[in-house]
Simulated assay, not measured.
Amino acid sequence: MTDVLTEQTEMVHAVVPILGQMGLEVLVAEPGRAAARIPTGPNVNHFGVAYAGSLFSVAEMLGGIIGGFFQVPGAIPIVKRLEIDFTRPAMTAATASTTLSEEEQARVQSEATETGKANFELLTEVVGEDGTVVARTHGFYQLRVMG
């Protein structure tokens, strides 16, 4: 893992400590792109597959990474709603990844700068190590100036 990704992972763990306990690792963190991975270890449920809440968490937190790249003083990303479809049991570590287009990034940046808030949506896939899509999410987030 690069120093930047190590720093991003440590920051996520500091802001949301449960993500550290889950063993979450940030794999991609750049404007418009984010990915994170959770290992099987602490995320296995009572019948040996990934716990649904862990799969939800690894997908949901990507909005915070994407939102953190906007240059709006005092703004933070918040989740408003997240819909999840569990498609297959996750038998291995799982990686969630998402993107936000350059056009949408520009719109969010402009709107949040002008009005103090801007909504954005993220579609995320959560994939097991064997390439199986285990979940898909549709997240509704807001970049909001606080204070």
Rank of each mutant, 00 (worst) to 15 (best):
E103P: 11
G116N: 06
P77E: 07
A106L: 09
S97C: 03
F86T: 01
I78D: 03
F86D: 02
F86E: 01
Q109C: 06
I78L: 15
A106K: 13
Q105Y: 03
A93N: 07
E121P: 02
L82M: 15
T95D: 11
E103W: 11
T92P: 04
A94C: 12
K80Y: 11
A93W: 03
E104K: 05
R81W: 05
E114I: 12
Q105E: 15
A118V: 09
L100N: 05
E102Y: 09
N119T: 12
F120I: 00
S97E: 13
L122T: 00
L100R: 01
A93R: 03
L82I: 12
E121G: 07
E125Y: 08
P89M: 01
L82H: 12
A112G: 08
A112K: 03
N119Q: 11
F86Q: 00
N119H: 13
A93P: 02
T98N: 06
A112M: 10
E121M: 08
T95K: 08
R107P: 03
T87V: 09
A94E: 01
V126Y: 03
A94V: 08
V108K: 01
V126D: 00
E104W: 02
E111H: 08
E111F: 06
L82P: 04
E111I: 08
Q109L: 10
E111W: 00
L82S: 14
F120Q: 00
S110P: 10
V79K: 03
E111Q: 12
T92A: 02
V79N: 00
F86G: 02
A93F: 05
S110E: 15
V126L: 04
E83K: 08
E121L: 12
L100F: 06
P77Q: 01
K117C: 03
A106G: 06
T113G: 04
I78S: 05
R88W: 09
